[in-house]
């Protein structure tokens, strides 16, 4: 039989290959990206966002960053709500990635203000001292090409206006990339749902700490706050911090839940204990120096 007939062997081999292929690769098209997993609020990329996505692809960002949050406790705590199939219907190609040399970006949209991204892309180590991410400041020097972007949008069948395309001429590749990052994972209103409601009376367990204890918590401030609020609370991307003017509990709520509309990310992931340490550091460190 097939032992001596190469053509028959080739056909049988093809058949063996096709069984699993049809069941696990062809069949799913009947469910995936249909009404079954559709999400009403998910919208196509704008021209600027799509161009940003193509720059993300061109620079191979997917080699170090994934874009899918798994439904696992630690993962949802770290990155946000787990990813849903319907969120990716406009993704050609998919960019889920396979390795997290850097953090997952599926829920990056709205986490930081635009200014944070511009500064971070231009000089990652200015914001995150020990990161190994390369500098991408050079993207700012490259203007966008509206003609090419129009062709792309036409191929993808995404809606756009002529005003939108016209405005692209003034934009550069960094603008596009930041616009894309701000869109990531923000089509569903997960941030509101994820915010923690604080009930009962809050009390700062560290209110009576002395200055030397405060210094132990300085690294927490440096890692999480300094990039936006400056080395000496003077402010930069975020406002100047005048801890003394605020109640401990008020500070706690802002740091714990963030102020999404003003670009202040939530730091609930640090845990209440560390957030109280940051609160105490921000509020009393300067006072301690004064005394």
């Amino acid at each position: 039989m097939w032992e001596k007939k190469p053509i028959l062997l080739l056909l049988l081999a093809t058949a063996a290959i096709l069984v699993g292929t049809i069941i696990t690769v062809v069949l799913p098209f009947a469910w995936v990206n249909t009404e079954a997993d559709r999400i009403e609020t998910v919208t196509p990329y704008t021209a600027l966002q799509q161009e940003g996505r193509d720059i993300y692809i061109r620079e191979g960002c997917n080699n170090c960053h994934t874009q899918t949050v798994r439904p696992l406790v630690a993962e949802v705590l770290r990155y946000g709500d787990y990813s849903k199939s319907g969120e990716f219907v406009y993704d050609r190609p998919f960019l889920w990635g396979s390795k997290r040399t850097g953090p997952d970006l599926a829920r990056l949209g709205g986490k930081y203000p635009d200014a944070w991204h511009y500064k971070h892309m231009a000089s990652p180590r200015a914001m995150v001292p020990k990161t190994n991410m390369p500098d991408y400041g050079w993207l700012s020097a490259n203007q966008l090409d509206p003609t090419m972007i129009k062709r792309k949008m036409d191929v993808l069948g995404f809606p756009y206006t002529s005003d939108e395309l016209y405005s692209l001429a003034d934009k550069n590749e960094m603008d596009a990339l930041v616009a894309y990052m701000q869109k990531l994972g923000s089509d569903i209103p997960w941030r509101n749902a994820a915010a923690t409601t604080i009930v009962g009376n809050l009390k700062n367990p560290y209110a009576d700490s002395d200055h030397s204890t405060l210094e132990e918590w300085e690294p927490l401030y440096e890692e999480n706050c300094e990039a936006c609020h400056g080395e000496h609370f003077e402010g930069d991307i975020g406002p100047e911090l005048d801890g003394a003017s605020m109640e401990d509990t008020e500070l706690f709520e802002i740091i714990y839940n963030g102020v999404p509309d003003n670009g202040m990310p939530p730091f609930a992931g640090l845990g209440a204990d560390k957030v109280w340490q940051v609160v105490t550091f921000v509020k009393y460190y300067n006072q301690g120096e004064d005394h």
Partner: peptide, 20 residues
């Protein structure tokens, strides 16, 4: 294909991931 050097996958999102 969009141009000689750029194309978009025939599959989207989860389908593209599964095929890939």
């Amino acid at each position: 294909p969009v141009s000689l050097f750029k194309s978009y996958s025939a599959f989207a999102g989860t389908n593209d991931a599964n095929v890939h």
